[in-house]
Design a protein around this nucleic acid. Structure first.
Ligand SMILES: [Mn+2]
Ligand SMILES: [Mn+2]
Ligand SMILES: [Mn+2]
Ligand SMILES: [Mn+2]
Lengths: 219, 219
DNA sequence: TAATTTTGTTAGATTAATCTAACTTATTAT
DNA sequence: ATAATAAGTTAGATTAATCTAACAAAATTA
């Protein structure tokens, strides 16, 4: 069994590889807020456990075993978030910190039950894919809202930034997964958009916001 | 904040005090399966934190602060067990090990929500009282089934032993909280009882079993 | 009361995870 | 190509939680 701490290293490696490709000691150290020598020694430990392929001065890589274990932790995290939103009626801005803890619970039956009660969901409340039981993730191809053009209509599929502040910002304008957004106009100067969706006829969204919203184009 | 390990010491102290009155180092050591010198040093640490009133060679006692913290952990444990049974449809024999982990989750809103969804339950799936938000327990006066007399009728209110084996034994004869048990006869030799309840007309229960069942006598 | 047994403490070692300081390797800039 | 900077490693210390071995106190038995 891996410790909670080892699990957090695996998860960070997995997520960072998906975000940025190559992961190095400096970045992992920054992400986990743990000093570099500590990270180095943990990499050696995880390498001994065949979870990480470690070579001095080389980029950090998870082994296949490491990817699987990481994927399964992320599966537990995202199933938990979905459960908290769907079955316990918490807001999507409130669930991450709880899932961060529950992801380390050791109990196959507990997470099986969650999955079953939720009807085997494929994505979490933020639109992120839930890894399958073998830890594999199927990535859907989404577009950034900021890459869409005037006149296009697109469905809000996921959010990139899942900070509580950003999610509350979206709450404040009734923006949730699934809303169909029509792009009325784009301001050339700052790339802000005027969009309509639901009952909102003309919401202005800055580029900073549009960069963090992923959509599925209609048609 | 207390560590998970400190929390487990507090909880053990609290539960043992309720079961046996005085708690000593030897017993706590046995319960936690941790060697005595380790227990001694943890008692000193918890004493520094004002959670335990520790004097060498004296019985171990929780401070008021320690009792409250322990009560609140047990509250989380029992709310979780109730949630797992009522909302996630797990068996009463399966929930303890999961609750043992979830009781350490730090998130007031998570447990508030559980409480609310359950309708503010007063007891857990095994009939044990759920401490209130200040960590206090209200004990109901129950009788052991083994102390009842021929002809009496009593409602199954709680189980003393919550081992999976015992609970499965009860499952096997459709014995659950709330069933009304009538004592048909008592065998003087081994104190085994013949009882009827629900659709069962003549179940034989050994004294070992009857000692572990708490009932509320019908007035 | 004295001897024996049980209970509890002290001392010192160990392990996991962390840190700082010093050093080395790799990359970037001049 | 050399110097300067950034990235990564090694060495050694620290903290929490554990252990074993040795010792001390308390309780029990003779
Ligand atoms: Mn999350
Ligand atoms: Mn985590
Ligand atoms: Mn329990
Ligand atoms: Mn516990």
């Amino acid at each position: 069994m891996n410790s909670l701490i080892e699990e957090n290293y695996l998860k960070a490696l997995f997520n960072m590889a998906n975000e940025a490709g190559e992961v190095n000691v400096t970045e992992l150290s920054r992400r986990l807020e743990i000093k570099m020598p500590t990270v180095t020694s943990m990499m050696k430990k995880l390498s001994d456990k065949k979870l990480v392929l470690y070579e001095s001065y080389k980029p950090l890589r998870l082994s296949e075993k490491g990817k699987k274990e990481a994927g399964l932790i992320i599966r537990k995290h995202r199933l938990t978030e979905m459960f908290l939103v769907e079955k316990m009626h918490l807001g999507w801005e409130d669930v991450h910190d709880i899932a961060e803890q529950i992801e380390h619970i050791q109990s196959p039956v507990f997470f099986e039950k969650m999955d079953e009660l939720l009807g085997y969901p494929k994505v979490d409340p933020h639109g992120s894919p839930i890894p399958d039981k073998s830890g594999k993730i199927v990535w859907k191809e989404y577009n950034k809202l900021s890459d869409c053009r005037e006149g296009e209509t697109a469905k809000l599929a996921a959010v990139i930034n899942t900070s509580s502040d950003f999610l509350k910002f979206l709450n404040g304008r009734e923006m949730r997964l699934g809303v169909k957004i029509k792009i009325r106009s784009i301001e050339p100067f700052d790339k802000s958009m005027v969009v309509s969706y639901g009952k909102r006829q003309a919401e202005v969204l800055s580029n900073v916001v549009c960069e963090r919203i992923l959509v599925e184009k209609e048609g």
